[in-house]
Design a protein around this nucleic acid. Sequence first.
DNA 1: ATTAGATTGGACCGTTCAGTCCAGTTCTTG
DNA 2: CAAGAACTGGACTGAACGGTCCAATCTAAT
Lengths: 205, 205
Amino acid sequence: MPEEPKTARGRRTRERIVASAAGLIERQGVEATSLDQVLTEAEASKSQLYHYFADKQALVRAVIAWQTASLVGGMAERLAQIDSWAALEAWFEALVAHQEALNCRVGCPIGSLAAELADTDEAARQDLARSFDGWAAQLHTMLDRLRERGLLRPDADTAQSAYAVLATIQGGLLLAKTTRDPQRLRIALAAAGGYLRSLAPAPRV
Amino acid sequence: MPEEPKTARGRRTRERIVASAAGLIERQGVEATSLDQVLTEAEASKSQLYHYFADKQALVRAVIAWQTASLVGGMAERLAQIDSWAALEAWFEALVAHQEALNCRVGCPIGSLAAELADTDEAARQDLARSFDGWAAQLHTMLDRLRERGLLRPDADTAQSAYAVLATIQGGLLLAKTTRDPQRLRIALAAAGGYLRSLAPAPRV
DNA sequence: ATTAGATTGGACCGTTCAGTCCAGTTCTTG
DNA sequence: CAAGAACTGGACTGAACGGTCCAATCTAAT
């Protein structure tokens, strides 16, 4: 029954709904966001929503895809430019600044969705797992570049380090969001940076 | 209106309600857990619940206190015994084993509550922030002990490292829960261990 | 044993919410 | 421009949920 929009107008409507839902869910969580709220903000009606989505879960999965695209996509260019410790730490600092600007109020959209949905929505859980893996893969690529440049030991396990960095980012965001203190994120990221630096080649003695 | 139980029977009832709520919330989250569900499992009635709790939020805060006591309390003795890298890594491995046994289905109760409630319940957010800080304080004590034993450099910032370790644990648990792969937690913890080891005194050359 | 207070059972209420339905409008295409 | 398909508005439904209420029962201390 629910289909992809076939006209430009339909596409705009669908996009408006998903974008509104993404914003509200990011700020309030899935359960706390009602469809009526989404529709009011998107200036759409029930029948429009159910024209494009089978049910709320389908909308949520569309939001996951939307957030994954915007977040992981937006990160790609930034990560592609990291080729030194200074650049890495500048990125970290940008993440902190972003949280600071938002008063630590949202954390990571993917992380928040994962925490809320992993228990209750198996399909969403899998989407989110893939989303995390995509993010980790980008970090992996970045770390491989650092290793090629000689900043990491040749035998450093960049795949594992990518997961570790991702975990530290997520945990730091959670602590920052809970305490409303961006400093927690900064500390976590500094440790992640310290860990990576500990994988640098031993200085010649 | 809602008061502490004044008789042994009342105390048992209240305890049964909180324990059931804690279990259900741990597995399903706050919003997905209804009061009727809690009452069925606790074999109690509505009036019993509302005799001891003003509303659902009050029950949730009691659950937070309960989880904090059981988790942070239970951790105290374990952390108090850590005085070597081997002991630290054994603790990490125990955390992984615990998740493995649970099929990565719950993560950290405090962390899950924090992710769900930080946006929507200010009082709960503050409770959870304190809970995290209590946990971090215990890690801090443990790291101070390691430093005293000469395993960490005298100038190592153990307070910050405690936050960093906590963040990595939380992030690792979130990734493990989302991907249902305990390996993610193991990797994250290995990195946390690696980071701490990088704070060891430089070997004499 | 009496009695005041603590505790309990569960019917009931009002609201909110996801989801349905259909009549009406707008687009697209031959 | 005709007709079918795509899209839209919004009233409506049924169930679930948090919360209320009051009469009944239990407990403990006199």
